[in-house]
């Protein structure tokens, strides 16, 4: 049981890293990884919302959609629930947890269209995970997202001052740097027998 959970965690965290191996959530990856503080704010907001939305959609799917035979509405229901949840969380934090809100407030609306959140809610259903397994999976995924985005923000900060030819400035060199980081992460494939 514990081994199983640990394997799920490591697979989600490193081996099948959501950004570099699954290519999900790339828009915020290139958008906010320009400095450490934005990267940190974004990844903490992702951790928070991903965990909440996984719980809410898992419960909704297993206790509402399946009994009512409405599985085909999955896509529409999940995206609306996540959008509503993000709005609600934003208002709640603004009222009750000011410091937390100022740390990740501006990233919350962006998260609604972050495909990483929606992808995790679909994946835990496709993999037929239990609620506990889903929790571990979403924490692992969010930490993997944070790890890569924060590591990458350090690289981007260095790239700002590097002498780069004009055509490669900005996005192209960032993609090529991401390619090298992904190559490093490819080395983790096969760890504990976990594959892509």
């Amino acid at each position: 049981m514990v081994t199983n959970l640990l394997l799920i965690f490591i697979a989600a965290f490193i081996v099948n890293n959501i950004l570099l191996m699954r290519y999900i959530g790339l828009c915020p990856f290139f958008g906010v990884s320009t400095s450490f503080s934005t990267a940190f704010g974004m990844s903490s907001a992702v951790l928070f919302v991903m965990l909440l939305s996984t719980w809410v959609t898992w419960i909704l799917y297993h206790f509402v959609l399946i009994p009512l035979d409405l599985v085909f509405l999955r896509t529409a229901v999940f995206i609306l629930v996540i959008a509503a949840l993000v709005q609600f969380v934003e208002m709640f934090l603004k009222k009750n947890f000011k410091p937390l809100y100022s740390a990740m407030g501006i990233y919350l609306p962006l998260i609604t269209t972050n495909c990483a959140i929606l992808a995790v809610t679909f994946l835990v259903i496709d993999y037929k995970y239990s609620l506990l397994q889903s929790t571990i999976f979403s924490i692992g995924t969010a930490l993997g997202f944070g790890l890569v985005i924060i590591l990458f923000s350090a690289i981007r900060e260095r790239l700002e001052f590097a002498p780069i030819s004009r055509s490669f400035k900005g996005y192209p060199i960032a993609f090529i740097a991401a390619s090298l980081v992904a190559l490093a992460f490819l080395g983790f494939v096969g760890l504990f027998g976990l594959t892509l």
Binding site: L20, M21, Y23, P172, I173, F175, I176, A178, S179
Partner: peptide, 9 residues
């Protein structure tokens, strides 16, 4: 994945 990133860069 690295190939995809490299190509789009």
């Amino acid at each position: 994945p690295p190939g995809g990133f490299l190509l789009i860069g």
